[in-house]
Nucleic acid binder design. Structure first.
Lengths: 154, 154
DNA sequence: CGCCACTGGTTCACACGTCAACCAAAGGTA
DNA sequence: TACCTTTGGTTGACGTGTGAACCAGTGGCG
């Protein structure tokens, strides 16, 4: 492998700043929802997708695609959510292998209450600090980085 | 609470892009180190701080401050790292409550091998895609967001 | 000195994530 | 039809993270 130059001071600062922004932002939003609404970020995303689906129902593997989750993760998490009464799982009639997941009444109530508060948090913690130009720039960066990663892991 | 406007399309896109950049970047770097060097991101950070400390040794609670980790997390993780022979823990002589953590020979070898490869990954996945202006902008954003979060959670 | 709050750590219980092994239904293909 | 692979999910083992309870040593303070 060819020699790779170490990060210089400015790069160090930039890298640390971006990483801690990530961590702090994620932790803040997760903690808010957890304490205030009793939902983890994972719970929230599951409920968002279900509540947006027709009938509040999705095939399990379809939900996995939307979330980009491994199947075992999905299975375990849905199990816990089912125990808490947030979703209902049942074997699919069309394909006896598969499972249909439906959001419960309780799940609907929770996501309905949590969503606007979450949006408010996202605004307060992120968008409110950004100019239009900065928003544009960071979106561009995110797209480029994501594209670059896709090439790195084929 | 006052009514908070929902995210518009552009904000939605920006938010999703930034969040997935975070996730993909973190996952890529973690997986690289795990598969190639046998270290998790958490292991790596512990070893970095220890290897930079005089004598490769730190008081446990000092290490916790540097990492911004909860004490139980630190205790559990150091326990696992000690079992793997990466660090050594011993009661501090100065304060019988506390513990000194020292990086082992094996830990030193691993971090020495892993660090340059990690830096190369960071470059390939992040810095190589950014112009100087973009680097400047994202650093500014990170600082502002971090500052804003500090105010939100006193 | 004797009490008592604080500090530094560990431990327990639990939520969450990955990987590998496993299983049953579905869907080719000979 | 019988076989064989693929697909959709579950399970078990383990590493990782949080919060609460606990515990011993430290350091005031009357």
């Amino acid at each position: 492998m060819t020699e790779v130059p170490w990060l210089d001071d400015e790069e160090q600062r930039a890298w640390r700043a971006v990483m801690t922004m990530q961590d702090d932002l994620a932790e803040f939003l997760d903690r808010q929802m957890r304490n205030r609404d009793g939902l983890s970020k994972a719970d929230y995303e599951v409920l968002v997708h279900l509540s947006e689906a027709p009938g509040g129902r999705l095939r399990s593997f379809r939900l996995g695609e939307l979330l980009r989750w491994e199947k075992s993760r999905l299975s375990q998490h849905l199990g816990r959510m089912e125990n808490r009464g947030l979703v209902i799982r049942e074997r699919s009639l069309a394909d006896q292998r598969g499972a249909d997941v439906t959001i419960s009444r309780r799940g609907t109530d929770l996501i309905t209450a949590a969503a606007p508060r979450h949006v408010a948090d996202v605004r307060a913690a992120f968008f409110d600090h950004l100019t239009a130009a900065e928003l544009q720039t960071i979106t561009t960066i995110a797209a480029k980085v994501k594209e670059g990663l896709a090439k790195l892991q084929p």
